[in-house]
């Protein structure tokens, strides 16, 4: 479980998060949703120690992230941040291979090779594995980075808007893949936390939802509890119709 207690965060003059407390449960996919500027990415980056905690406390499975070394945390959680203009010229296989770096620190063993091969197969990168990263499309780069995070072999996998740049085919494939990896019956179930922009992906695939607005938690719980007309209408400041499809909410926000 990731427990977030009384976390506030300022950048310059603006208060991004105000006294946020939330628990991220120990199973499946947790989605962070909310309007632009709500503080979703900031919260995710704080949990991933990409930003330094200003006030409050964050624990991952009982370990205080402020007191745990970055190296140890790298064995506990992996974050795939938003990629802004990849400048590096690495082959996809090398990139995914660097996901194993926290384990081997420069001397890869056979089990590292096996994990990398599994990650490449798992995210359908076989055909691209010898291509250079800077020659791929944005969506292909995104998939390579997610595969790298997966290869890191951590219990927790944090994804910051992983569906950016992906067309609908690859977006659904990625969600299905991540979903399968997070099921209890998977060989080694991962716990996934992701910031999602398109709310229907959260509705279809997430097990738990945390809704943020103006830097505070507006609602949290199962999709059927959070993704309702009153909650969403208040969250986004507009009337939003919610239907049901196969027992899951379907949000008709675009019409």
């Amino acid at each position: 479980m990731i427990s977030i207690r009384n976390v506030s965060h300022r950048i310059g003059q603006s208060q991004i998060l105000r006294d946020v407390s939330a628990d991220i449960p120990d199973a499946g996919i947790t989605a962070l949703i909310g309007p632009n500027g709500a503080g979703k990415s900031t919260l995710l980056n704080l949990v991933a120690r990409l930003l330094t905690l200003q006030t409050g406390r964050i624990e991952i499975d009982g370990q205080d992230i402020a007191r745990t070394s970055s190296r140890d945390l790298a064995l506990k959680l992996a974050i795939v941040a938003q990629q802004l203009g990849v400048a590096s010229r690495l082959r996809v296989r090398d990139l995914v291979g660097f996901g194993r770096w926290p384990h081997h620190r420069g001397r890869p063993g056979p089990e590292d090779e096996a994990t990398v091969a599994e990650a490449i197969a798992s995210f359908d990168l076989g055909a691209l594995q010898h291509r250079f990263l800077d020659e791929l499309s944005g969506g292909q780069q995104q998939r390579a980075f997610v595969a790298m995070g997966f290869a890191q072999g951590t219990d927790w996998l944090l994804l910051d808007e992983p569906l950016n740049n992906l067309d609908m085919f690859h977006a659904r494939a990625l969600m299905a893949r991540v979903h399968a990896l997070s099921r209890p019956e998977a060989p080694r179930p991962r716990r996934v936390v992701m910031v999602v922009h398109e709310i229907n992906y959260a509705a279809a695939w997430a097990d738990h939802i945390i809704a943020l607005k103006d830097g505070a938690v507006a609602a949290c719980g199962a999709p059927t509890e959070v993704l309702t007309n009153p909650v969403l209408s208040a969250l986004f400041g507009m009337e939003i119709r919610v239907e049901e499809l196969h027992g899951r909410p379907l949000i008709l926000h675009h019409i």
């Binding site: 990409l50 970055s70 140890d72 790298a74 974050i79 941040a81 660097f98 926290p102 890191q152």
Partner: peptide, 14 residues
């Protein structure tokens, strides 16, 4: 090489 992938990736890899 990892640093060339950016700060976020470096930190994520510990």
């Amino acid at each position: 090489t990892i640093a060339g992938l950016g700060r976020a990736t470096s930190v994520s890899l510990g």
